[in-house]
Lab assay of single mutants.
Amino acid sequence: MSIQHFRVALIPFFAAFCLPVFAHPETLVKVKDAEDQLGARVGYIELDLNSGKILESFRPEERFPMMSTFKVLLCGAVLSRVDAGQEQLGRRIHYSQNDLVEYSPVTEKHLTDGMTVRELCSAAITMSDNTAANLLLTTIGGPKELTAFLHNMGDHVTRLDRWEPELNEAIPNDERDTTMPAAMATTLRKLLTGELLTLASRQQLIDWMEADKVAGPLLRSALPAGWFIADKSGAGERGSRGIIAALGPDGKPSRIVVIYTTGSQATMDERNRQIAEIGASLIKHW
């Protein structure tokens, strides 16, 4: 067993022997301040990774656009098919120029040779490549099948209805392509620590998230040296922004954090800054 596999296998073990965790309302004060600064709703939840206990939450059962955070769930569904012998990570998928959609920095470079399922998941999570996500959605049967996968996990809230990039439209009061912070946090925890996926697939999923290259201005910008984070960000229309993450000190994750916002007129930089400040408060009061 590799060191990384050992780390993920012992996530519940280490967490069980940690000192009790206590909620700190100071972080919620910052979440509410972010709402004021952005002029928009902000949803927040913080779960203990081992027990699933909610440590703090704000608007945990209000719907927010998922945006690209759905790509972690998508690759979880792909990995479940791999575990069941219905898919192979090494299978190569070929596609054409007509398949390319807006923001496809990886797939646009491989029109000639195609990409493997493993490479597509890596591109979808680490670079948020939209064509990679659409190609992977095709392998599982489309958005409705991802929703069905989530329902089978016990998540009857999260739903995907459309493809990239239309799913980022974020129309107010439109339930399409949305989740709730509580539902997303619980589902992410199941994917990373539950028995739904094999140990190898859980490790692969967290490795992809740990290698995320496009979430630097968010929670990662607030992390002290030595902290662990595996995350996936999302951005959408109407001032929408979000991030889902597993993080913790001492090089291992111990909490799940989900943050979503929508309806702001603020710039992307300002949305990023507010999420980073929430992260800084979380870490300060850990």
Score class of each variant (00 low, 15 high):
Met1Gly: 00
Ser2Pro: 09
Ile3Glu: 06
Ala9Gln: 08
Leu10Ala: 13
Ile11Cys: 14
Pro12Lys: 08
Pro20Ala: 05
Ala23Asn: 06
Pro25Asp: 09
Leu28Met: 12
Val31Leu: 11
Asp33Ala: 15
Ala34Pro: 02
Ala34Arg: 02
Asp36Lys: 15
Gln37Leu: 14
Gln37Arg: 13
Leu38Thr: 09
Gly39Lys: 15
Val42Tyr: 06
Ile45Lys: 01
Ser51Asp: 15
Lys53Asp: 10
Phe58Val: 08
Phe58Lys: 07
Glu61Lys: 13
Met67Glu: 05
Met67Trp: 01
Met67Phe: 04
Phe70Pro: 00
Phe70Trp: 08
Val72Phe: 03
Leu73Ile: 14
Leu74Lys: 01
Leu74Gly: 02
Cys75Ala: 10
Val78Glu: 03
Val78Tyr: 03
Leu79His: 01
Ser80Val: 11
Ser80Thr: 12
Arg81His: 10
Val82Ala: 10
Ala84Val: 13
Arg91Gln: 07
Ile93Pro: 02
Gln97Leu: 14
Asn98Cys: 07
Asn98Gln: 15
Val106Arg: 07
Lys109Asp: 12
Met115Asn: 03
Glu119Gly: 10
Leu120Ala: 06
Leu120Met: 11
Cys121Phe: 01
Ser128Val: 00
Asp129Ala: 00
Ala133Ser: 10
Ala133Asn: 02
Leu137Met: 11
Thr138Phe: 10
Thr139Leu: 11
Ile140Glu: 04
Pro143Gly: 06
Lys144Ser: 15
Lys144Leu: 13
Thr147Ala: 07
Phe149Gln: 07
His151Arg: 14
Asn152Tyr: 15
Gly154Val: 04
His156Cys: 13
Thr158Asp: 01
Thr158Asn: 01
Arg159His: 12
Leu160Pro: 04
Leu160Gln: 07
Arg162Cys: 06
Arg162Asn: 11
Glu164Lys: 01
Pro165Gly: 06
Glu166His: 11
Leu167Ala: 08
Ala170Tyr: 12
Asn173Gln: 15
Asp177Ile: 01
Ala183Cys: 08
Ala185Ser: 08
Leu188Tyr: 08
Lys190Trp: 09
Lys190Asn: 14
Thr193Tyr: 15
Thr193Met: 14
Ser201Val: 04
Gln203Val: 13
Met209Tyr: 00
Met209Ala: 03
Lys213Gly: 08
Gly216Trp: 08
Leu218Val: 04
Ser221Met: 11
Ala222Glu: 13
Ala222Met: 12
Ala225Pro: 15
Ala230Asn: 01
Ser233Ile: 00
Gly239Pro: 01
Gly239Val: 01
Ser240Lys: 01
Ala246Val: 13
Pro249Trp: 04
Ser254Trp: 09
Ser254Phe: 08
Val257Ala: 06
Gly263Ala: 08
Gly263Asp: 09
Asp269Cys: 11
Glu270Lys: 13
Asn272Trp: 01
Gly279Gln: 02
His285Gly: 09
